[in-house]
Design a protein around this nucleic acid. Structure first.
Lengths: 232, 232
DNA sequence: ATTAATTTCTACTCATTGGTATATCAGTTT
DNA sequence: AAACTGATATACCAATGAGTAGAAATTAAT
């Protein structure tokens, strides 16, 4: 009856400890992210983050080993949550068209809630250690890739008419990410308006009903010339 | 005949001086931008920039008063060149559809050539002094605004069928900007492929041929709930 | 050639800030 | 209440890098 009792309390209190510890990390992330979002990563000192939380710098250091670790957590959260809802929606037993719609809606929901995380991730990626940056990039690539798979599937089922699923997935991913950059809760548009708009845009780009337009001859020549110059 | 002769040489040599000085600034911008692009603004020291140029830090300081001034020049170049070609194309005596196409092509041409400037501008804006950041933001806003005007004009002429020209302009602007983020000369796609793809996407979003799709009821409820919570 | 102006470099300062060694406090157990 | 344990704070260090003063070198003018 006493064997389970390890020196720092019993199992239940150990569990609570972990929860509290997790919550503190969460709060640190939140405030740090808000400041990174506002002033940028490098311009934000950990002292400022500590002040915001009403604690001191060593407090933060007992939950995050380095400033870069903190940024890493923020970045990973930003992208991994989007990826998660995408994968969830992608696994549904629905038509590609339905899944695409659900993806747009649910990823946008994430973006509205975590837009600061996403903006910080996009902007401050460069401040991560190379290895971790690569890891984050991998997640992003996975996002676009899985989206492209759905587009390709929709193509072969005849639901979509997409000329280049990979590029189109990149574009749709960009359109969604772009929302995080310009949307503001204080702005003119409601979240619903934005969702409806993006759905419309996505709808449009997966149903190409026009003849394929080509680049005008002058621009073509210009670009070929430049590439030649570089190549030779 | 001697009155014009100011102490440092004659007018011609003064002109050349200015040109040389301008060229040096240009080179400083270029190398600084390349390093900012690679490692980020704060992580790049001016010593590193100087080394890249084969000069020393005070050399840079005799052409740019502060590091932030240097960033400002880079950011302004990034956005103002895009804006310039947009305005040039917008002023042409052509149909909105033609003008839009020319805009996409020429802005993309700028982006291919100056993509590092544009990426640095997007990413490092936060490191500018507030006043200058606002100035840059204003240029960006102008870009989207003028694009929206063309879309609206096309709408009223019956060339386009756009439900929300302002949001659509934001989206198109984003699609173009997004290219700067992912395009790489070493990547799989040629510039021509990218231009054709973006033209296609733009073409699609200005001709909405589907019924307007609406957000699914569940998501609607979710969002209304959240907004209520925040508002109350 | 000599002088004057300008450009560039050497060698520094100094504020900032990420990170840490050590002390203190609070809660728990005996 | 005393001793122990874990959490948090105080007070510090070391390094970095923006920015500068003044010397040296280069260029141009007489």
């Amino acid at each position: 009856m006493t064997a389970q009792r390890t020196s720092p309390g019993n199992a239940a209190s150990a569990g609570l400890r972990a929860e509290v510890s997790g919550f503190k990390r969460l709060r640190i992330r939140e405030e740090a992210c808000a400041l990174f979002f506002m002033h940028g990563y490098e311009s934000t000192t950990l002292d400022a983050v500590a002040q915001e939380l009403g604690v001191t710098k060593p407090f933060i250091y007992s939950y995050y080993a380095t400033k870069s670790d903190l940024l890493y957590d923020i970045c990973r959260l930003g992208i991994s949550m989007s990826l998660e809802v995408l994968q969830h929606a992608a696994a549904l037993d629905r038509s590609p068209s339905d899944r695409l719609k659900i993806i747009v809606e649910s990823v946008l929901a994430i973006i509205f809630e975590y837009r600061k995380f996403i903006v910080v991730y996009e902007r401050e990626e460069k401040n991560l250690e190379p290895e971790r940056m690569r890891e984050i990039r991998e997640l992003r690539k996975l996002f676009d890739h899985q989206l492209a798979d759905i587009l390709a599937e929709g193509n072969s089922l005849g639901d979509f008419e997409i000329i280049d699923p990979v590029l189109t997935a990149t574009t749709i991913g960009g359109m969604i990410t772009w929302v995080a950059q310009w949307y503001s809760p204080d702005g003119k548009r409601t979240q619903l308006e934005v969702i409806n708009h993006i759905l419309l845009m996505v709808e449009a780009v997966v149903h190409v009903c026009q003849d394929r337009r080509s680049v005008s001859p002058e621009v073509t020549k210009l670009i070929l010339l430049k590439n030649q110059k570089k190549g030779g």
